[in-house]
Design a protein around this nucleic acid. Structure first.
Lengths: 247, 247
DNA sequence: CCGTGACCAGATTCGACATCTGGTCACGGA
DNA sequence: TCCGTGACCAGATGTCGAATCTGGTCACGG
């Protein structure tokens, strides 16, 4: 469809300008000019400016979720929290829109924070639930420690993620090594905090009994459920994104 | 000395007003009134308003360091990163000034952020060095993992601390349980990330050989050096604080 | 019937004027 | 003599109406 392609152009123009100028300085006129359409046309696709800008953010988030899902499908080990969050961290570093979103960059996002906060906290809750659900599944398969309360684990994971993301903005000038290495540090920290390593997994099997699953087998067994969970989340995001497009 | 007591009153008044009204709304006039002195008298103690406000923050930080040190002296186990950071976290929750400082509360701190940022980053570096030094000592005594690069451990610790502090501000409405429990989660996460547990410590001793130190003995052995390190930091803070007082 | 840009109302910015406040210092009291 | 004080000043900050800008609409033209 010709129409959909035009919508993409507008979204792309909005994104470029948002990152270059920040929410306040961007005008619908300029977006329309850059997308090569009339101003009114923008309003054939989005109801308001807020809606359009929010769509930019939602799309970035959705893309990240798609990539996450693709990684899980390519290698089931990516369902483990440490791997998942490292992927998330990489997406975050690679996508300026996400960086602005998670470091709460007031200049770039402007009143988007206010207007769309409700929308975004709803999405936050959805990903919270996904995290909760996946932890439950991973616990059942003996891949995540059960000697700690699940809600506490969740809080720790959220806090760690917040910390490493914030550190990226805060310590930008004395952050060690490359982004990849920092991602590894993050993954390592998460791993130690909540996961059961392959060695521990093997040691934890009932000794002498008929051999239970290996760590790899447990991961493979847990993968479909976790993937299904995140697929639902991804669909939710896609719906949410479409909800902002007219007609 | 009468003079010192008056200085304290001014500092206390400044702190109260800073927390109640925020940097911008606080006037020297009001501080003087509340401290029961003339406006000019404030300037007999501090050179500028910035200096005074910075002193409020520095004093809070210094007090926290004093308490930290006292805890270490009372129980050597408090030299372990998990214990140390939990103490730090508690101080942080108990002292509104520190909460404002570490969550970068722009409304309360105002341009303090700009003016005094240099000063504070210097202090930050000092505590960075203290952290680095104490990790080295703890590694030598087999109390902290050596299978990870020290600088990476340090980055992870800073990020985790940033995350749990930020989470306190971010998730205030859905944070689980009590502050104490959150402190325990924090300590637990830090413990798993960098420390060697008593069990691992015992297992890690050269087997069969003449029995090496127990975990508790290793802690006791490491304590004096770590305490000396933090005592130096505390003195540095005290000097810095005094530097802002006139004469 | 879809795309457009002139148009409007309300939001934002600007700038001159008024007020406030950090910092000084001459004075008065001990 | 010397310490504490508050009147005072300059520059920062706030106010408020006019001027400008911009999100959103809609009548028109292709």
């Amino acid at each position: 469809m010709e129409r959909a392609e035009r919508g993409e152009r507008i979204l792309e123009a909005a994104k470029e300008l948002l990152l270059a100028w920040g929410y306040r300085r961007v005008t619908i006129d300029e977006i329309a000019r850059r997308a090569g359409v009339g101003k009114g046309t923008v309003y054939l696709h989005w109801k308001t400016k807020d809606s359009l800008m929010l769509a930019v953010v939602l799309k970035a988030k959705w893309r990240s979720q798609q990539q996450q899902l693709a990684r899980m499908r390519a290698d089931p080990r990516n369902i483990l929290p440490s791997r998942m969050l490292r992927g998330f961290y990489r997406d975050f570093l690679a996508e300026p829109v996400l960086r602005a979103l998670y470091t709460d960059d007031a200049d770039v996002l402007g009143r988007l924070n206010d207007t769309a906060k409700k929308e975004l906290t709803e999405l936050m809750e959805v990903s919270d639930q996904a995290l909760h659900g996946s932890l439950e599944i991973l616990r059942e398969h003996g891949l995540v420690r059960t000697d700690t309360d699940l809600r506490h684990q969740q809080y720790a994971l959220l806090s760690m993620a917040a910390g490493f993301f914030l550190a990226e903005a805060m310590l930008y000038d004395r952050a060690p090594d490359s982004p990849e290495v920092r991602g590894d540090i993050f993954a390592d920290t998460v791993h130690r905090a909540v996961e059961i390593s392959p060695e521990e997994f093997a040691a934890g099997q009932p000794p002498g009994a008929a051999h239970g699953p290996t760590h790899g087998e447990a991961v493979a067994a847990a993968a479909p459920d976790v993937i299904a969970l995140y697929a639902r989340m991804e669909e939710h995001s896609a719906r949410e994104l479409r909800r902002h497009v007219r007609d």
